[in-house]
Nucleic acid binder design. Structure first.
Lengths: 238, 238
DNA sequence: ATTTGATTTAAACATGCGTTTGAATCATAC
DNA sequence: GTATGATTCAAACGCATGTTTAAATCAAAT
């Protein structure tokens, strides 16, 4: 006799759910089929029976996450650009950046952002066939749209500069997302001053940082040395 | 009879050399004992005989790299701060950032920066005992010094803000470094406009980006909405 | 030349992993 | 109740990896 009849979901559904949770927490490589099955209350072979292997399960999970996030971000961009058109103005740089960050750092749904970060991080560190497929099919068009939007919002930047900075932006977000919890390097080095777990603060700090980073164009002088408008204050010690 | 008598180095030295090279190229997890030994022209067991295991070898390599880089960066900071004191001015923000980036992106010695990035990236994605030890013993003091220096160079930022932004800065550098070569996402998405392999451009783009990111303080208004001084230009299409 | 300790070598070992297998069990239709 | 197909299960398989072993080889001292 089985106990999970009405209360518990079907095995396949449970595995998918647990997979999302564990992938977000421990990363893709940090989850073994056995641990996953155990947490889902299923047999090890169930993963292969229902999904045809760990990679297929991961593909399914991450394709879904990426797709949801993509739809949401494209809609946000549409809204921002529509508002700008209505005001006959450029899209607001801060709003564009905020909408991008929002996909990764969102108080309502922290898991999606974490999963998205895990996906892109894995694809960057050790890409393989299925990460390539998911990134190409789901994330590339978002990137292209954002590069265009950022270029419009920050017209002082050349096309190449926008690409560079978009890339830097993603990097800072990803690495921050992967440094969660009380063991985080940020929290330790700051002596508890910064808590990455506080998504609200994290979000606003990120947006501030990135907005500043996109506001100013190339400021390197023809010479190597370039200290622009530094007022001679007293040097602060240590 | 052995051929490697005067020309080739000792086995231990060769293994260490090849390890540096392969760790930089393929990452730590991407190098197997067997591949390493083969490339070094040594037996698989030699790695354990001379270093006592793969982890010890990695520890030795990365501790050395981190140490070299740390010494160099601290010296650079000393110089920058001494110059500032001599002029009775604040340390130049751009110079501080440039010296930080220099440890990762340096045309003369690309390998050290890559290795450093691999180390920190591994420690972020899947920390373990030896990464913790190396990071704590070698990199923490650099981080603390740089946070102080950046705080002095960017006095409009509060202490917590400086920590946040230092963290973001490291993230953008790391992720960029790990996205090398012609298969890089940046190069693909930019249609070849940006080439991460060109360290000279990469470096200046990073420094521009980061200097801007540290120049401006918290610009969020009391309300959620904040579009500061946007002049109403014509909305650019697509 | 012999001895001795360090080094090198091929082979095996141990482990963790994703996956497969074949029998057992369940749900459903007849 | 029985047949049938889907599902679950314990067990084993295959493979890659880091490591160990014990014999073989080398280099230097005597």
């Amino acid at each position: 006799m089985r106990l999970n009849h009405t209360i518990e979901k079907q095995t396949k559904s449970r595995i998918r759910h647990v997979a999302e949770e564990m992938f977000a927490t421990h990363g893709i490589g940090g989850v073994t089929t056995r641990a996953l099955a155990e947490k889902a209350g299923a047999n090890t072979a169930a993963v292969n029976y229902h999904f045809g292997g760990k990679d297929n399960l991961a593909t399914e999970v991450f394709r879904d996450v990426a797709h949801r996030s993509t739809v949401r971000r494209l809609a946000n961009l549409d809204r921002i650009e529509a508002e700008a058109r209505a005001k006959n103005a450029r899209p607001d740089l801060r709003a564009v950046i905020e909408s991008f960050v929002d996909a990764y750092v969102n108080e309502d749904d922290p898991r999606t952002g974490l999963l998205l970060a895990r996906l892109v991080l894995k694809h960057r560190v050790e890409p393989n066939e299925w990460t390539r497929a998911v990134v190409r099919d789901e994330l590339d068009r978002v990137a292209e749209r954002y590069v265009v939007a950022l270029g419009n919002a920050a017209p002082q930047l050349g096309p190449a500069e926008v690409h560079w900075r978009y890339h830097f932006m993603v990097g800072s977000i990803l690495m921050t997302l992967s440094d969660d919890g009380p063991e985080s390097r940020l929290q330790r080095l700051s002596g508890g001053l910064c808590k990455p777990a506080d998504k609200r603060v994290l979000r606003s700090q990120l947006v501030d940082f990135l907005t500043g980073a996109f506001l100013i164009g190339n400021q390197a002088g023809p010479d190597d040395d370039g200290h622009p408008e530094q007022a001679g204050g007293s040097p602060v010690d240590d």
